[in-house]
Design a protein around this nucleic acid. Structure first.
Lengths: 344, 344
DNA sequence: TTGAAAGCGCTACCAG
DNA sequence: CTGGTAGCGCTTTCAA
């Protein structure tokens, strides 16, 4: 592996000059620069990043932190996509992504787990997922690293964050049911209160119902799985038999709801229309194919990456809360015939 | 951030002594060592890894390389689990995992993409997935980094590799169909030839059929998706109407096969029993719940991590090909009543 | 058991 | 425009 010194000797110039040439810094004659670059090319020179880090205090590495269970969550692997997008965006500037998963105990213990990263290990932190507590976020950022939140946000403090437009998404899907399919009795099968995404999606539904002067019907369950979707659908159908459509907190619940409804003799979409949220991979294979709201996960990751790069370059210093537009995916569970299938 | 020097000054000893004490090296009086450790504790001392890397040429980082599309593959996100297990195992020794995804072009271009990692960026490479070519593997390992293969293997060269017991897995599921459910006409719906996992799973099926003196029925399609599962099932049922059971290359195909069969008036498991492979997250939600063969993905990642650590520590130098046992998951699509549901 | 010092490869400052 | 050099924080010889 060649070094700056080696190149300097072969070229008969100083190490400093080679360094300047390699880093596109001013103060090198264009002819000299040419020769340096040519030799670097020939030698396949790669800078030793440890040495560079030692003097610059920058590592070109960012740490992606996520709850262990969430990372590969059974019914909806969301964060690997975020990480993929992040890595894509970061690598164009020569940055790398490290994965750090935290279990419940580590999350509770606070930033002890991060201590090892204080010292020259990462330039920034991406904290992903709603189940990272405010306390943890605050103490992590106190480490002095640039911090960005994905799918999480703190009300009080201001961090740069990237989140989906939950409210707009469910408002538009509710409107689709109202305007295109003329439903009047639409129930929201929602997840637990207190979780930002559940609350925001509920707000979108309420806005749409209010806008159309319809009475909202809310059914809240304490989880957002297929099973809880079944429960919610049963409750809704028993207490509100007039309901003809469901808006659900996510796709897993939508699938559960369709199954429960079918078990009660109600077919989708003829008797009960259903619209989910997320567009997980199996949504298009559901029976019938699920109409839903797509969260552009990879794109969210890319955006987070680009934001981080700007923050790190000092190009921007404002903390911004970015909302990424969701996309309606019209399939058949809403009553459409599915000809307006999405283009991937 | 405190440094060795700072500690040395406060303790009135030399930097070398502090370094030795911190690294558990001999040559330090036990009393001195105590004092050093106590101060380190108090100061929350963290070594500067860039500085350490510069002198030791070790980074405590391993690079997880996977094909971009594969990492979050729509129907079966396999590699995030591997990465999770890897990270879990590695972090106990203070190692970190970096993600590098490669697209088709980069894969074809050879190790250019890896050049940046030659220099003090990673101590080892984990190459995951069958679609990383031998050529790429060979040239990557020529970089001089310890290399480990997951879900891939080279026939000629010897690399340490971790793979599932594909052959044993499908042999046992085929046997289940033969012995427990008395099927005589079992078709294998297999994926493309040439892919090691497809071939191995086929071999397991053939072994079981041969062992029972039954005639194998092979249907090969060029993909392993729900759609190709449908195609394969249609072909099988048309050309071999006597077939009463399917063994499929993976769960996605199994689900497609059940749907196609149902479309042709054959119910699962009454008319056609089906057993898949992989145990993807949606297998238990299929209709009927899918009997399959589970690949212990997270455990494979952990194993890869432990192996790597041994290799790096020089504890072991032998290149070993490790096969991880799969686990039969009996649900209902095979004809069992599902009471023997797996314990997670 | 301990200390002094060289040096890993690089950036950045100061002279010229 | 160019060169010399200090020094980032650490590990590791070599002496004492």
């Amino acid at each position: 592996m060649s070094t700056l010194r080696e190149m300097a000797e072969r070229l008969g110039v100083s190490i400093a000059t080679v360094s300047r040439a390699m880093n596109d810094k001013p103060g090198v004659g264009s002819e000299t620069r040419q020769r340096v670059l040519a030799l670097a090319q020939e030698l396949q020179y790669q800078p030793n990043l440890a040495a560079r880090s030692l003097v610059t205090s920058r590592t070109n590495t960012i740490l992606f932190i996520v709850h262990q269970r969430q990372f590969t969550e059974a019914e909806d692997p969301f964060y690997p996509f975020i990480m993929l997008g992040l890595e894509e965006a970061l690598k164009v500037d020569g940055f790398h992504v490290m994965l750090l998963t935290l279990n419940d105990a580590q999350l509770a213990a606070g930033p002890t787990a991060l201590r090892a990263f204080q010292e020259k290990r990462a330039d920034a932190l991406v904290l992903a997922g709603p189940d990272i507590s405010s306390k943890f976020i605050l103490s992590a950022s106190a480490l002095g690293l640039t911090t960005l939140l994905v799918d999480n946000q703190l009300q009080l403090s201001s961090f740069t964050s990237v989140q989906p437009q939950n409210e707009e998404g469910s408002q538009s899907s509710t409107n689709h049911l109202i305007e295109v399919h003329q439903h009047r009795h639409i129930a929201l099968l929602r997840g637990p209160g207190g979780w930002a995404s559940s609350d925001e999606r509920a707000a979108g539904y309420l806005a749409a119902m209010g806008g159309a002067n319809l009475d909202p019907i809310l059914v809240e369950v304490d989880d957002t799985t297929i099973e809880s979707g079944k429960d919610a659908a049963k409750q809704a159908l028993e207490h509100h038999p007039q309901v003809t459509a469901f808006v659900t907190a996510n796709d897993a619940m939508a699938i559960g709801a369709m199954r429960a409804a079918r078990g009660m003799g109600r077919r989708t979409p003829e008797d009960i229309a259903v619209i989910g949220f997320d567009d997980i991979s199996w949504a298009s294979y559901a029976d019938p194919p699920l109409t839903t709201v797509r969260i552009p996960t990879i794109e969210m990751g890319r955006l987070a990456g680009r934001l981080l790069l700007e923050l790190l370059n000092g190009a921007v210093s404002v903390k911004s809360r970015v909302r990424v537009a969701t996309q309606p995916i019209i399939r058949q569970s809403c009553g459409c015939n599915g000809h307006i299938e999405e283009k991937k």
